[in-house]
Each structure stands twice: as C-alpha cells, then as structure tokens.
Design a protein around this nucleic acid. Structure first.
Length: 429
RNA sequence: UCCUCGAUAGCUCAACGGUAGAGCAACCGGCUGUUAACCGGUAGGUUGUAGGUUCGAAUCCUACUCGAGGAGCCA
C-alpha cells in the first residue's frame, strides 16, 4: 500500500492508499462518523457508516483528538469535504491514543497558546504560516544561488558589536566577553572580498527590550553582500529578490494563503520596479499628510506606515541623513550629508523588511567614522584591513525573514511566523 | 525604561458592593452527510498573590507577580 501525503491525494483519486497522521477533529451523528485527519501537508475527511462498518465504527468512537493513526482506504473527490478529497477507510491502525488535548477548536488567548507553542503549531493556520516560511527561505537561497552568490555563513558568536549601537546578549567565552551576533554584515564584507558575491542566512539576536508585534529577541536574517555592486545594483537585486519570493509563495501556497484569509490580490498586483523615494521626499510626504516631522530625525513605526500606505508595492526610502545611519555607510558623493543607503518598507504597515546600501570603501574616511562613533579601533582592525588590501565599491543588505513572512501572510504578529519565537519575557517552550 | 490594558471553571467570557453563571472541552445518552455539527444530562471554583475599606468584596483602594498592546530602538 502506497503511503501518500494528503496534499498529493488528488493525484490518487479512485485508488487505495495509506495516510499517516493525527486526528484533528471528529464529528458523529449516531450512525455516521466523520474524521478529519491531518498529516502536516493538509486535512483529509474520512467517513464511516455504522451500518456498513460496525467494528471500525466502534473503534473510531474511542479515538481522541490528536491521537496518531494510520488509515488505509480508497480516496475520491468529494466537494462536501474540506480539502476536496474524502476517504472511506478500510482499516485504521491506532499508533497512540492522545490524552485530553488542551487546544480545542474553539478560540484561545495568546498567552494560553504561546505557553503551548509546541502544540499550537499543529493547528491549520500555524502550519500554513510555517510552510510559507519554509518557501520564503528556500526562495531566498534559490534566487541568490542562481545569481552566482556563494553561501558564506557568518559567525554567531562575535567579539564585539557590529554596529556598536544596540544591546547585545553577552556570554562568557572561556573567560572572555563575547556576544551573540546582531548582524553578519561586517563578516559578509570580508567574504565578498574573497568570493565576490556572497550571502549568509541565520539567526540574529537583539537584547533590546522591544515589545511590539514586529520584534523578536531572536530572528532570522538573510544578508547578501556583493563586490563591485553600487547602490543602484543593490536596490535592483533586492526588489528582484522580493518579487521572486512573492511569486514563489503565490505559486506554491494558494491553499495556505486561503487558510490564512490572505487577500492575495494585494500580492498579485505588485510589479517591478518598486517605487523609490528619497528620505527628503519622504519627509515632504509626511508633512503633506499633516504629520510633524523634522528633517534629520529617524522615522518611527507610525511614520513608516504613513509612507508605505501611499504605495501598493514595497517602497525604497533612500539617502538618509548620514548622522542617523551606521558608520559603514557610504556618503553620497553629490551630497555628503546623506548616505547611499536604503530601507525597503513593506506595504500595509508591516514596516522595514530590508535595510541596506553601499559601504564605505575609503580607508581614511572609514577610520575617521570609527573614531567619531567611539568604536574600539583594535576590534575593527580586520575590518579596516579590507580597505587596505584592494578595496572596491561594494553593497549589501539584510532581509528580515519574520517580517517578510508576516507581510506575505497578512499576519498581525511576527511571533507566529517562526516555529518557536523568542519574545521579551517568554523563553518557554 | 516609559505609557496603556488585562488576570473569574481546562478554554473563551459574563456577573460591576448583596447566594459566582453561560458556551465550548471532559464524561453519559440521542441523532445516517457532518463542516468550530447539533440536542439532552452530569461533573467542574480559596475569582493571580498579599494587605486594606465595608455588616458584606470577583466587584472599591494599595502593593506585588505574571502577561498583552504600544513608544523608544530596530529587521
């Protein structure tokens, strides 16, 4: 008997197959029982009539929610069944009867669910989110690999802050202070000088006590870096990547997006190129909308939402004031008061999903910036070396995976876009 | 760190100074096409903790604990 995943059952209509999974729900009306079985790929309805299968009917009455079972039987198309396919089981093997399951099909609060995240991920919406996350990650790799980018993983344990600004998680490295990485970027620059076009993809850590729906203590970031890419090349690469991710998700996840009630039209109508707005233009836009904003300040979350609300596609905001950006950003040669950096703001108020730009490639200016920002010169000696031995113009960016998935799925909170979120004040499970 | 809100049955909530209640889940029974099925019944509580006000507190006051949303910071 062939073991088939529920999502592939439509290719087996009329055949007898085996499905392995868990009982998601059971509905009985005395002489007929409907089982809803899940296997991680989808939901399958099974129907058993008492008159036709008395022993099986009795067996099934004792199967509880989330019990693990292996069922065999013929599947056929059935419009009344969720998922479109239905099985009439010939045999059901019980692997394990589940104890009284805490997560019911009714509504639950966030605290209750977060405390049971290990079980919450079994529910349809959470599974759909995680499947889409997997596709987003795969699309990132596929896209960059096709563009001849080499995967060069950056370290997680680092000796010093990359940007010197944010609060980091400190750890004891055999008596020496070390920190969990908040960005692989500086290492990426070194790797790009070795391999040309590279990316890293892994978790990053921020110890700030951020407590919003857009923040996690541990989140995943795709960071790409390319030698000889200028600012414009960089933005073009980013928008093509995002476009590729959108198309991959639309193509592979029609069912999941439906489970999530996502308005897919909003994703379908996004086209290239993405709109571009300079920081100065963005400030003007905010003022037009009646918001108080002074040139030279950084945008807050409500400002970002106000800007992105003007566009259907993600929008680049570029050329920020040099003073509010990181030390490694390259000033615009035609206006040194601003840098060749850009943030990509997702539509519908999901905020910044990419930050990137052209890097400072001039040795003396970089050394000056390191001093200005009061960064320890010794710790950055290797980084300035990159400008000493064959420096080239180069650019890169970092894409926040959870925010991207939240936007694509139309989910309120990023904590649902990662299997086991690390949020402020919650380290369990 | 700051601001706002919340904590009552396993879950989601009601009771707003006068005997703690409903729906769901659990358990028992009924129902031949259910869609979070439905119908009847049973059981389920030191109202987050500690103090105070009151004849009387889930309800009012104070502190604390835990959590949520937001700000700042960021992806």
């Amino acid at each position: 008997m062939e073991w088939v995943l529920i999502k592939n059952l439509k290719n087996h209509s009329g055949q007898e197959v085996e499905v392995r999974g868990w009982l998601y729900n059971k509905r009985s009306s005395g002489k007929i029982i409907f089982l809803i079985v899940r296997d991680g790929s989808g939901l399958l309805q099974c129907v058993i009539a008492k008159k036709e299968q008395p022993e099986l009917f009795q067996l099934v009455e004792g199967i509880t929610q989330e019990s693990s079972i292996i069922i065999t039987g013929a599947v056929r198309e059935e419009p009344r069944s969720p998922g479109g396919m239905e099985m009439q089981p010939k045999d059901i093997r019980i692997i394990s009867i589940a104890e009284n399951y805490p997560i019911t099909l009714k509504e639950h609060g966030v605290d209750f669910l977060a405390e049971r995240r290990h079980l919450w991920i079994r529910t349809p919406k959470q599974s759909a989110l995680l499947r889409i996350r997997s596709t987003v990650e795969q699309a990132c790799r596929d896209f960059l690999n096709r563009r001849d980018f080499v995967l060069a993983d950056a370290p997680i344990i680092t000796p010093a802050a990359c940007e010197g600004t944010t609060t980091l998680f400190e750890l004891d490295y055999h008596g020496e202070k070390a920190y969990l990485s908040q960005s692989g970027q500086l290492y990426n620059e070194a790797a790009a000088m070795a391999l040309g076009r590279i990316y890293c993809f892994g978790p990053t850590f921020r110890a700030e006590k951020s407590k919003t729906r857009r923040h996690l203590m541990e989140f995943w970031m795709l960071e790409a870096e390319a030698a000889f890419f200028d600012f414009e090349d960089n933005m073009k690469l980013q928008e093509e990547l995002i476009y590729y991710i959108i198309q991959s998700v639309l193509e592979k996840h029609a069912t999941d997006l439906k489970i999530l009630n996502r308005d897919v039209e909003k994703l379908q109508k996004i086209s290239l190129p993405f709109p571009r707005l300079s920081y100065t233009q963005a400030v003007e836009l905010l003022r037009q909308k009646g918001r108080q904003f002074e040139w030279g300040n950084d945008f807050g979350a409500p400002d970002e939402t106000a800007i992105s609300d003007n566009f259907d596609a993600p929008v680049f905001v570029h050329r920020f004031p040099t003073k509010i950006k990181a030390f490694y950003m390259k000033p615009d040669p035609s206006d040194p008061g601003v840098v060749l950096g850009a943030d990509l703001l997702a539509p519908e108020g999901y905020g910044e999903i990419i930050g990137g730009g052209q890097r400072l490639d001039d040795l003396s200016l970089l050394e000056e910036r390191i001093r200005e920002h009061n960064l320890p010169g010794e710790a950055f000696a290797w980084y300035t070396d990159l400008r000493r031995y064959g420096t080239v113009p180069h650019s890169g960016f970092g894409l926040g995976i959870e925010r991207t998935v939240a936007w694509l799925c139309g989910t309120e909170h990023v904590r649902e876009t990662i299997p086991f979120p690390r949020t402020l004040y919650r380290l369990y499970p």
